[in-house]
Amino acid sequence: MRHARELAALAAAESTLSAAGSTLAAAGSTLAAAGSTLAAAGSTAASAEPMTAMDVRARVRDPLFGVASLAFAWELLARLVVDRLPPLSGVLVAGVDLVASGELVGALAASLPTLALGYALAVAVGVPLGLLMGFSQRADALADTPVTTLFVTSVASLLPLLIAVFGAGLGFYVVVVFLFAVFHVTLTLRAGVRDVDDALVETGRVFGASRFGVYRHVLLPASLPHVAAALRLGAVRAVKGMVVGELWVYAGFGSLLHGYQRYSQTDSALAVVLVLMVLAAGLSGGLGALERRYAPWQRVEGGVR
């Protein structure tokens, strides 16, 4: 059985992660902003709106300035105030070592398959379930209590049980990633589908859509932007789940984090955290770019909703 020390390590790592979370959100919106700039620049659509100075500022300059200030504040804080906090420059150097030593590649090779598998499962279950719960009151009545109960359950508290059921192998990691992501995907999507204006459904009926046609040609396309939002939220949650699982049964990024923390290599540990932030923000930003590509009518500003 695991004992108190590991639990403490887990708690510490989780709080590092959640502290990093807000930084991640900032980085994510920078990425998203950069993405939309790219999309705007590459767009050949009929609406060739020239970007105004205000747009450039809102999309690129301000977010970059925000990240730069944060980096500067970190550097100052580490050098002048907090002794134990490695300066950002040191963390970046450790990050270069991480890449050069091949440790990062190793961790990615170990972790990404479980992330991909768990996330794919969460999407495969969460998207149809969320759509169904949004479309049908009957389905919602059936599924609401179990889904909401599991949603509010702390997945971390289920880890001992999961290990007992799935062992300490691939299955365990995949299930943790799945459980971290699936309910967020489901419930985000349900909320989005319910948000679709009834008037659009009536309009569809007036113009001859059958019962099935209303789903196919009105509710489904109207829900697509919400699918994209749910996928983005799910991706960020999946990365968190991956790390938590790997901290419980050491593997990939989890064993890297654990090893560095154990030998007080805080700079390397933080470099790993930075990599994880970039991974989550990159996934979220990439899915945002897909959304702009395939749902160009929807202009949701910013990152995860």
């Binding site: 008037a199 659009l200 113009f207 697509l224």
Partner: peptide, 16 residues
């Protein structure tokens, strides 16, 4: 029925 087509105050266009 589309035999009785409707025009709405809030347009109700399909955004997508």
């Amino acid at each position: 029925s589309p035999e009785r087509a409707m025009v709405f105050q809030s347009f109700n266009l399909f955004d997508w």
